[in-house]
Design a protein around this nucleic acid. Structure first.
Lengths: 219, 219
DNA sequence: GTCTATAGTAAGATAGAC
DNA sequence: GTCTATCTTACTATAGAC
C-alpha cells in the first residue's frame, strides 16, 4: 500500500465516521481500524485529530471554492466594463456546490455540515481559513449592492453560507426525506431564496427567509 | 443546601453546559464545579450522565407535553360530537411550546435542540420516551385527515417536530439573529407552515416546506 | 513510511467514611 | 445526602525500532 493510499484511506474513513458520529465520538482508533491503517499514521500524515478534520473539510470544500473563484473571475470578465448582475454572482457561489456535491452521499454532507455547527469556536477556525479567499473575492457584492453597508453585506454573506449549511441538517426519520432532486431545480430554488435575502432592504430583516419559522424548540 | 437545591443546581448547570458545549464536551466535572456540588452527586441523583441529559430534557419538555395533552382534551371536548379542526389540533401542539419556551434563553433552546440531532441514535431513546404520550394522543390527526395513510400521518407529525427542532439551529454570527419576536406572531407563522405541510396531498412532497432550500452542504 | 509500545491525560463511575 | 479518594477505561499523541 502506497503512502498516498494510506492518506486517502484515512481521509475517506475519517470523513465518513466524523459525519456519522461527530468529531468527538469518532475516535482515531475507529478511523484507523476502519481504514485498516496504523494508528500512528494519522499523526504522521496529518499531525493531529483537529488537523485531520481540517484536511477532510479541505478536500471537499477546497475544489468547490476554487471553482467559485474561477466562475466569478469569468463572470467579471464577461460583464466588463459593467459589474456582473447580483444573481450571476450568487450563482457563481452556489453552482459549484450544487454540482460538485450532487453525487456525494447526503448523509455525509449532512454530517459534515453539522460538524461545522457542532463545535462552534473550534470549527470556526477551519471555516474562516477555508472561506478566506472566497469571502474576499465575493466582496464584489459590496459594489453590486451599494445600498448595503459592508457589515450588512458580511452578515448576509454569512447568512447565505449558513442557510446552505443549515439546510443540510435534515430531520425526522430517514425515509421521510425525499432524495433525488434535479440539480438545476435545486440550484434555482436555492438561488431564489438567497437572492431574496440579498435584495431585501437594509435592517428590519425579522420575518424573512429562514426565519420564517421562528426560533422554537425542543418539543 | 437541601437535596432539592442540589438536584436543581445540577440540572440548571447541566442544561446550560450541554447546550453550550454539546453532550460529549460538557464533562460531569465541569457541571458539578459550576453547580458547586460534589461530583458524586450526579450519580447519586441521576444515575449516569445519559440519565442526567434525560432529566434535563424531561424538565423542559415534560410540562409542555402535559399542556399539549390538556389542550387537546379540551378541544376534543368542545368540538363534540364533531372532531376538532386540523388547525385547532396543530395549535394544541404548538402553542404550549411557543408560550412556555418564550422566556427561555434562545441559546439554551438552540443548544438543546441541537443535542437531539447531534447524537442520533442515543438521543432517539430520550426523544421517543418524552413524546410517547403526545404522539399517541395526537393520532387523532389520522381521523381528521382520513385521506392520509397512517404512515403518512406519522411522517408528517415527525416532520412537524423536526421542523421545530430544525428551526432552533440558528446559523451565522450571533448578532445576525434578530431576537425578540411576538409570540403570537411566531405561533401564527409556525402554524401556517405546519398546517400547509399537513394539508398537502399525499405522496410527492419533494419541493415543499422546509425542503424549499434543498439539501446542500459544507460550503 | 510504517509499526509497536507506551506515555500522559481526562473522563465516567463507584466504594465507603461521615 | 454528601464527600474524598480511587478504579477503570478510553483517548490523543509520541518515541523509537524497523
Amino acid at each position: 500500500m502506497t503512502a498516498r493510499d494510506t492518506r486517502e484511506r484515512i481521509l475517506d474513513h475519517a470523513e465518513r465516521l466524523f459525519a456519522e458520529q461527530g468529531f468527538d465520538r469518532a475516535s482515531l482508533r475507529s478511523i484507523t481500524d476502519a481504514a485498516e491503517v496504523n494508528l500512528a499514521a494519522v499523526n504522521y500524515h496529518f499531525g493531529s485529530k483537529a488537523d485531520l478534520l481540517g484536511a477532510v473539510l479541505e478536500r471537499r470544500i477546497g475544489p468547490i471554492n476554487a471553482e467559485r473563484i474561477r466562475l466569478l473571475d469569468q463572470a467579471a470578465e464577461e460583464a466588463k466594463p459593467e459589474l456582473p448582475r447580483l444573481r450571476t454572482v450568487l450563482e457563481c457561489f452556489l453552482r459549484p456546490a450544487v454540482e460538485m456535491l450532487g453525487d456525494v452521499d447526503p448523509t455525509i454532507l449532512m454530517g459534515l455540515g453539522r460538524i461545522l455547527h457542532e463545535r462552534g469556536e473550534e470549527a470556526r477556525g477551519h471555516f474562516d481559513r477555508l472561506f478566506a479567499n472566497v469571502a474576499e473575492r465575493f466582496l464584489i457584492l459590496a459594489r453590486i449592492c451599494p445600498e448595503l453597508a459592508p457589515e450588512e453585506i458580511h452578515a448576509r454573506f454569512h447568512f447565505m453560507i449558513g442557510a446552505m449549511l443549515h439546510s443540510t441538517v435534515q430531520v425526522g426519520p430517514a425515509k421521510a426525506r425525499p432524495r433525488p432532486v434535479d440539480p438545476e431545480l435545486r440550484l434555482a430554488q436555492l438561488l431564489a431564496f438567497v437572492e431574496a435575502d440579498f435584495i431585501a432592504p437594509p435592517a428590519k430583516r425579522e420575518s424573512k427567509g429562514i426565519e420564517l419559522q421562528p426560533e422554537e424548540s425542543s418539543s
